[in-house]
Amino acid sequence: MTEHVSQADVRAIAEYARIGLTAEEVVSMTADLNAIIDSLAPITEYDLEGVPPTFHPIGDLSNVMREDKVRGSFTQEVALSNAPKQEDGSFLIPSILGEGGDR
């Protein structure tokens, strides 16, 4: 089996995907991912020069849009009905200092 990803890579991927992994999970995940990535080899074995990608398996369908018309919205109560934590009509979250993103 080729090592496509190291344990360090797996830790970095997990951090990006925001999934906490235990040390043991990192080990097993590394093995699983490498095995799966090995099995992806067939798609690297074709000459794909000049073959267009099919991002959308929808034939010639294009320009699907809607008119700029207002449709009903949720009430605040419904919008928040599954909120783990809420306050003053808003979703409540702990400190976001240290979050990256584009802001």
């Binding site: 995907a17 990608p53 099919t54």
Partner: peptide, 30 residues
């Protein structure tokens, strides 16, 4: 679920995208 999320995150990362994701969409055409 974690395996698939991790796998997807890896496959879309820069450098890897061109090796697997884009060819996979070309293979879809074939």
């Amino acid at each position: 679920a974690k395996r698939r999320i991790m796998l997807g995150s890896y496959l879309l990362s820069s450098g890897v995208y061109d090796k697997y994701y884009y060819p996979a969409q070309q293979v879809r055409t074939l």
